[in-house]
Design a binder for these strands. Structure first.
Length: 490
RNA sequence: CGGGGUAUGGCUCAGUUUGGUAGAGCGCUUCGCUUGGGACGAAGAGGCCGUAGGUUCAAGUCCUGCUACCCCGACCA
């Protein structure tokens, strides 16, 4: 490949990916996932990026319904007073709320907040809908946009407005709510691992990291290729906090009034950012086949002064065979640009497989296959049975990407018994650091100030022996110590 | 809100130091030639230089204010 200077003026060369700070933006822009909008901190999700989100949405939506939830839609405008009903909630969200003060040419009697999340307005409605244990459980989900006025934004990972799903459920018992919370966390884990090929740690958040208003928050934490952790989804057991604030009450089997036990859980377009930061190389994005807008791009080698119609027809026949096996495809037969430009474009976009056929291939009854994940090119692959060959190859790529990510995480998950060990790990290779912790909250500001790191969670998957490993903070061994994962995070 | 940067054609940028009325590459249009990893030639189209003032015979260029976006930090379900 040519050097940067030579690339500078080439079409779509974009910026060089060596600059770690702008990898996300470079890939997202070059791959046409998104573009900057005229509004600060907001982005336009372009068709290619939205198609990825669509795939995520379709997969998850199906599971949400299969696990007994129904979709609904609640309004974007929330009376400001609603937010104030739950003390922790308003404290957590007020600073990042956008507020509508005027409408219809007049100042509003009550201001409206653009929802940063919908617990309050949903509880207001739940209170009207629920009166008996027979109305429970009530399991609702909505796909919506939310607005959070973040000081600093990044494409997909933290934008002012983003798309997500938020599940909200009401239960008759704490236990049932807890089961729901953990079940949805597992659904998220499956989504990330089985489809996005991103392994995650599940675990519980500390008090300071939990959702404002929740009793407890559970998270899936993923590792990005730059060694930083990403909170990829959360599931909250809300206890009765919101129910008490909104009087979401029901009569139980003993004819006693009780407040509903609630959960909420969500994943957002941040997952597209996770995909970018979880799978890329120096060329650009690498998409797992199960989430790619199209899994195979078919490109003919066109001869302008010749009749290419039979070649294109040939490619279409192959295309039909692939589609018949459920492979998603795109044919790019544009004749105004060279195949080299096309190759580069689809590599930047992370299309898992490229299938190329030229006149010679057609004569020899072969095709050329390029794998995006390992950037291999195989000429002379038999055209016969190509669809089933690719079907298998796509599964191989999917599994390979997950394995690669798991290996990477394994290499970047360390153990620290002291703050000094933690320091050297975070500075050298980053990633997750396992440690024991006595629960003293003073460690959190320390981690933040010294290392810009945080406790990502108390993982479900534990590896340390509490009888041998001391608290990283106090140096004491105690069976009251809990295992934690520390990392720098987005 | 601090620190840094940027604002000139669709894109990436040069031109600002030393004021003289706007350029390059790419993209786009047409024609020719070409096509197995980012071709080539020719001819075109396209910009009141972010914005508002000021200095000057003359401002993309100098001065002042403002705005927007990007990066870094603070902040962050």
């Amino acid at each position: 490949m040519s050097n940067l200077q030579e690339q500078k003026n080439k079409p779509d060369a974009g910026k060089n990916l060596a600059n770690a700070e702008s990898i996300l933006a470079d890939i997202a822009i070059n791959a046409q996932l998104a573009d900057y909008s005229p509004v600060k901190g907001c982005m336009v999700i372009r068709p290619y990026g939205y198609s990825i989100w669509d795939n995520i949405k379709n997969i998850l939506d199906k599971r949400i319904k299969e696990t007994g939830h129904e979709n609904a839609y609640f309004p974007m405008l929330v009376p400001e007073s609603f937010l104030q009903k739950e003390a922790e909630h308003v404290e957590g969200f007020a600073p990042e709320c956008a507020v509508v003060t005027h409408a219809g040419g007049k100042e509003l009697a009550e201001k409206y907040v653009l929802r940063p999340t919908s617990e309050t307005i949903i509880n207001y409605m739940f209170a009207k809908w629920i009166s008996s244990y027979r109305d429970l459980p009530l399991k609702i989900n909505q796909w919506a946009n939310v607005v959070r006025w973040e000081m600093r934004t990044r494409l997909f990972l933290r934008t002012t407005e983003f798309l997500w799903q938020e599940g909200h459920t009401c239960h008759a018992t704490w236990k049932e709510a807890q089961e729901e919370t953990l079940m949805m966390l597992q659904e998220y884990k499956k989504l990330l691992e089985d489809y996005l090929a991103i392994p995650v740690f599940t675990g519980k958040k500390t008090e300071s990291e939990k959702f404002a208003g929740a009793e407890s928050t559970y998270t899936i934490e993923a590792l990005m290729r730059d060694g930083k952790a990403l909170q990829a989804g959360t599931s909250h057991n809300l206890g009765q906090n919101f129910a008490k604030a909104f009087e979401t009450k029901f009569t139980n089997e003993n004819n006693q009034l009780d407040f509903a036990y609630q959960t909420s859980w969500g994943v957002s377009t941040r997952l597209v950012g996770a995909l970018v930061m979880g799978h890329h190389d120096e060329v650009g994005l690498i998409l797992p086949p199960r989430i790619a807008p199209y899994q195979v791009v078919l490109i003919p080698i066109l001869k302008r002064n010749e009749d290419n119609s039979s070649l294109v027809a040939h490619l279409k026949t192959i295309n039909d065979e692939l589609q018949a096996l459920g492979i998603t495809t795109k044919i790019d037969a544009r004749d105004n640009i060279s195949q080299g430009i096309k190759f580069n474009e689809y590599e930047q976009k992370g299309v898992p497989v490229r299938l190329v056929v030229g006149p010679n291939d057609m004569t020899n009854n072969v095709v050329e296959i390029h794998r995006r994940d390992i950037r291999s090119k195989d000429k002379g692959i038999a055209r016969e049975g190509i669809a089933s060959h690719l079907k298998n190859l796509l599964e191989e790529i999917q599994a390979g990407l997950l394995k690669r990510a798991m290996d990477f995480r394994k290499e970047h998950t360390s153990q620290a018994n002291t703050i000094d060990e933690l320091a050297s790990i975070l500075e050298s290779k980053g990633g997750f650091v396992r440690a024991m912790w006595n629960g003293d909250v003073a460690i959190e500001p320390l981690l933040k100030e010294k290392f810009k790191a945080s406790i990502r969670c108390m993982p479900d998957d534990k590896e340390l022996d509490a009888s041998k490993v001391p608290c990283i903070f106090s140096g004491q061994i105690s069976d009251k110590n809990v295992e934690i994962l520390i990392a720098k995070a987005y």
